[in-house]
Amino acid sequence: MSAQHPPARRNNLLTLVARYREAGIAIFILILAVLVTLRAPAFLTLNNFRDILLNISILSIVALAQTMVIITKGIDLSVGSIIGLVAMMVAFVFKASPEFPVVLSLPLGMLLGATLGAFNGLIISYGRVPPIIATLGTLSIYRGLVFFYSQGTWINSFELPAAFKQLSKGTPLGLPNMVIIAILFALAVYYFLNHTRTGRNIYAVGSNAEAAQMAGIPRQRIIFLVYVLTGLAAGLAAVLWVSRFESAQTNTALGFELQTVAASVVGGVSISGGVGTVPGVLLGALLLGMIDNSLPLLRISPFWQLALQGLLILTAVVVDNLILRRSQRRGRR
């Protein structure tokens, strides 16, 4: 509130930076694309672009759900294990009854995933167990269930019906089904977060939990819901995973939770809650996917992938923090 520096002007500059957080990633992606293309022209082909989309479809779906959790100041470390368990269960269904309607596998997976998510949601919202602890626990529990369920056996490609394997890869609409499903899912999340009261309540709870309660927002129910939705998304991802990779293994999607959090954080979602957008997260996932894709094209050892991912996360949070810090300097009393 100091008189000598009217806050209005600086505000505008800052909102500009904050508002165009997505544009920042997009520009970064473009620069990267140009650089990679200069070195490896194969990058800029329709085929390669389709490959990238195919690769980030599953990641986008789960990362978007993870984003909803992070907006409420939570985190879901169990998504990888939910994918692993649901993948195995769906694969078992197809092995046991190959004539099971392929289309039904999607709602089945989502239902199974949502149930597992509901368990997370219960212990976090009503049991008031900190999200990181609760999902750390269920990460082990669900992964343990995969082993108990399958007794260590894997389901391989030949045990799955061809129609199911085509579910993710078929291109009746020009793009692979999986990409279309991911786009539809992203649109649904976008609509939910921006155009429904419940979606806005997710932001409200993450932005100021106490005020949310005062405003009559059912905080516990909202928190429960985001974990159910994350489970649902993981379940959907699991079906696509089995269909795409044509197998279900005991270590399916092991460690996948890290990538979903990475895509969110790179996409501008704040771990302290209240902030995050669908386009941002999609760009985050795209950036991660592009790096994975371009390494072999640039003949860089794929072993660099993980290290680069880590550096990307660190860069993203440092940049976000610098923006935030400048805005806080202004926000002083």
């Binding site: 993450g206 932005s207 100021n208 106490e210 005020a211 949310a212």
Partner: peptide
């Protein structure tokens, strides 16, 4: 008791 991440109207 405002929501810092939501805009004025909301």
């Amino acid at each position: 008791s405002l929501f810092p991440d939501l805009n004025v109207a909301e």
